[in-house]
């Protein structure tokens, strides 16, 4: 990966909420996502689709510096992530945390304000009110004081979304927010996504239900170990591209990844 020429295939506009340039991500040195390179223009709802193991969550985690990049770079509004973390909100998969944890729904949403509050400073009333209003926006105001264990799966997902809202970010990453939620929650999430778009926010959503892709998303990123296609849903979400995305793994790429993992450092 290191020997690659550092020549940009095309210019990245600094205004773009997200610009990824030649990024390869490896897990235990084994590449799982190869040469990702695209820009996302502002104010779009973007679906990230692909089969299991395609690297959808990995893409998000690499952008957020939660996983090391083997090569390449990521720009958020023209600057590296660590300078822009306040402008980026992340909704992890619901199963990634322990819902028996002794905190209330409001406590979790308040965590979205921590970045603004900063190290070692207490949570002021103002921030708690902001958290409360975020809970209200997802229809969970009545559940503010509940311990998170007492919430249904859909309600827990809404709490996670409210936490991202409370952060008042410009760019949102959501990892499977629709997974295993009830119909009411699905409606709330869709309405929320549209409201965010009206406010000029950019939202990237890992999504599984191919039926609703055209309905929910303006743009789509089709992944399978590499980017198969990126662009406006109307022109990119085609039968041909779906076949390339879901038509099985590239076995040679798999083999190459194993070889890279075994190669000397």
């Amino acid at each position: 990966m290191t020997g690659m020429p550092a020549v940009s295939r095309h210019e990245h506009s600094p205004a773009h909420p997200l610009a990824i340039h030649d990024m390869t991500v490896a897990y235990h040195r084994k590449p799982v996502l190869w040469d990702v390179d695209f820009d996302i223009p502002e104010g779009n709802l973007v679906g990230i689709i692909g089969p299991n193991g395609a690297g959808k969550s990995t893409l998000i985690k690499a952008v957020l510096d939660l996983m090391p990049k083997a090569s390449g770079e990521v720009m958020i509004y023209g600057r590296p992530y660590r300078e822009q973390s306040q402008r980026v909100a992340y909704v992890p998969q619901r199963e990634s945390v322990d819902w028996d944890f002794p905190v209330s729904a409001l406590d979790v949403v308040t965590m979205g304000r921590y970045g603004r509050i900063g190290w070692c400073r207490p949570v002021s009333r103002l921030h708690r009110e902001a958290a409360r209003s975020a809970l209200d926006q997802v229809g969970m105001a009545d559940y503010a004081e509940r311990q998170i264990r007492q919430l249904s799966g859909g309600q827990q997902q809404r709490v996670f979304l409210a936490r991202a809202l409370a952060q008042e970010a410009d760019l949102y990453f959501m990892d499977e927010p629709f997974a295993g939620v009830d119909a009411a929650t699905e409606k709330v999430i869709v309405a929320l996504l549209r409201r965010l778009r009206e406010d000029g926010k950019t939202v990237l959503v890992v999504h599984h239900d191919l039926q609703t892709v055209a309905d929910y998303f303006d743009w789509v990123i089709m992944l399978n170990m590499r980017v198969v296609a990126v662009g406006p849903t109307g022109s990119v979400f085609t039968r041909d591209n779906l076949h390339k995305t879901y038509g099985g793994r590239l076995t040679l790429l798999d083999e190459a990844a194993e070889a890279v993992a075994r190669s000397p450092q």
């Binding site: 957020l64 510096d65 939660l66 973390s85 306040q86 992340y90 992890p92 965590m111 970045g115």
Partner: peptide, 8 residues
């Protein structure tokens, strides 16, 4: 992970 993403 959220803590890391927020810069803590």
């Amino acid at each position: 992970e959220a803590a890391a993403a927020l810069g803590f």
